[in-house]
Simulated scan of single mutants.
Amino acid sequence: MEISFKGKRILVTGAGQGIGRGIAVELWRAGANIVALSRTRSHLETLQSEYPSIDIVDVDIADWQKTREVVESLGHFDALVNNAAIAICEPFLECSASSFDKTFDVNVKAVLNISQIVARKMVENKTAGAIVNISSQASKAALKDHAIYSASKGALDALTRVMAMELGPHGIRVNCVNPTVILTEMAKAGGWNDPERGKDMKSKIPLGRFGEVSEVVNAVVFLLSEKSSMITGVELPIDGGFLAT
Rank of each mutant, 00 (worst) to 15 (best):
35 V>G: 11
91 P>W: 00
45 E>R: 14
9 R>P: 03
94 E>R: 13
23 I>S: 05
105 D>S: 14
36 A>H: 01
103 T>I: 12
97 A>R: 08
9 R>C: 06
99 S>D: 06
83 N>R: 08
71 V>N: 03
56 I>E: 02
19 I>L: 15
30 A>L: 14
105 D>P: 00
32 A>P: 04
34 I>T: 07
113 N>E: 00
35 V>H: 09
83 N>K: 11
48 Q>E: 06
25 V>T: 13
74 L>E: 00
105 D>N: 11
110 A>L: 05
33 N>L: 13
42 S>A: 14
118 V>E: 01
86 I>H: 02
57 V>D: 04
109 K>N: 05
81 V>I: 10
28 W>Q: 11
55 D>A: 15
9 R>G: 04
71 V>K: 02
44 L>M: 05
10 I>F: 05
114 I>V: 15
96 S>G: 10
17 Q>N: 10
80 L>G: 04
10 I>V: 14
72 E>F: 11
44 L>Y: 00
77 F>T: 06
88 I>M: 10
67 T>R: 11
69 E>A: 15
78 D>Q: 05
55 D>N: 14
62 A>Y: 02
73 S>W: 03
89 C>N: 08
91 P>G: 01
117 I>D: 00
96 S>F: 05
54 I>M: 03
61 I>K: 12
72 E>M: 12
17 Q>E: 06
50 E>S: 14
118 V>F: 09
118 V>M: 08
47 L>Y: 07
99 S>E: 03
120 R>E: 10
84 A>G: 02
46 T>R: 14
34 I>M: 11
101 D>L: 14
118 V>L: 13
46 T>Y: 03
104 F>Y: 13
90 E>P: 00
55 D>F: 10
119 A>M: 04
118 V>Q: 05
36 A>E: 00
48 Q>S: 10
49 S>A: 15
109 K>R: 15
71 V>Y: 02
62 A>K: 11
11 L>R: 04
11 L>W: 05
115 S>V: 09
58 D>Y: 12
83 N>G: 04
48 Q>F: 08
113 N>K: 08
70 V>Y: 07
112 L>A: 14
20 G>P: 02
97 A>D: 01
42 S>F: 05
73 S>Q: 03
10 I>D: 01
72 E>W: 06
11 L>G: 07
111 V>S: 07
54 I>D: 00
57 V>Q: 02
15 A>W: 08
86 I>A: 09
18 G>V: 12
40 T>H: 13
34 I>Y: 06
39 R>H: 09
44 L>F: 01
63 D>E: 11
